[in-house]
Amino acid sequence: MSDKIDIRTLRGNVESINALPTVPSTLRRISVMMEKPSIGLDELGRLISNDPALTVRILKMINSAAYGFPGRISSVSHATMLLGLSVIKGLLIGVSVFELMEKTMIGLWEHSLGCTVVTRMIAQKKGLKEPEEVSVCGLLHDIGKAVLMLQYAEAYDKAMQKAEKDGINIHEAEIDYFMVNHAEVGHWLVQKWHFPMNLVETIRYHHHPNLSKQSPMETAIVHVADVLVRAKGVGYPGDLVVPAVHPAAWEMLNLSDNDIGDILRNLEDAASFARETI
């Protein structure tokens, strides 16, 4: 189809997100910094501390129900020590990208925060060592949607309309306009930003958790969290229907009725928190 965007051009555009005039300067600075192969915690801490608005947003996130340190962390340096490099990087990208997106795709922030809460809860229930790292995967799993929307607002709008009209999922509708879906797009970006392998894989395969080789557990968690958040109807991920859960991923996590009830109750808080942070 002639109005489709060629994949190589698409990837080039996505990866040069810094050059976009519509990208706010904070996000541009963060993106440039993340492209460096090695970046220290102190450097990131300075970047956050020098921006009062960013400091407030990051501390609000960490002290929220989504991160499970309610009311305890009052400084950026404390936060960086406690959470470590990849979590802080993820939070930085998360708050700067999604706050921007909330203006154009209402509800994606709420959906993403819902997934943050649910991924962390499942990771804890399954005894994973770093539940905060997994919850960053939940926060960023749809970053590809935010970036596509930023660069191709008109085409993305059409994809969302198609998804609603045909009663299909947005990742299916995207193929018609971009030849790839947001999962692929998101994985290009986090790879470019030198995020750890588990984050790259969970983003790339959150609709096809069976394909994950390095982090099958984390990918299954993000996949199931996405389904549960949609099932509950928290936020707006770009379509109106719940996709089927991948049976192997569901079986791997083996959640009890109690676990699911617990998750749904906590999602109520996440939804109200999302509205407060905007």
Binding site: A231, V241, V242, P243, A244, V245, W250, G261, L264
Partner: peptide, 26 residues
């Protein structure tokens, strides 16, 4: 009604009935 709408494509898929039932109870 919105819950029914959201699940309309997937009720025949494995585990989706159980998920829907739990969300409905919630």
């Amino acid at each position: 009604r919105q819950l029914d709408e959201r699940f309309r494509n997937v009720l025949s898929q494995p585990y989706m009935n159980r998920i829907k039932k739990m969300v409905k109870e919630h």
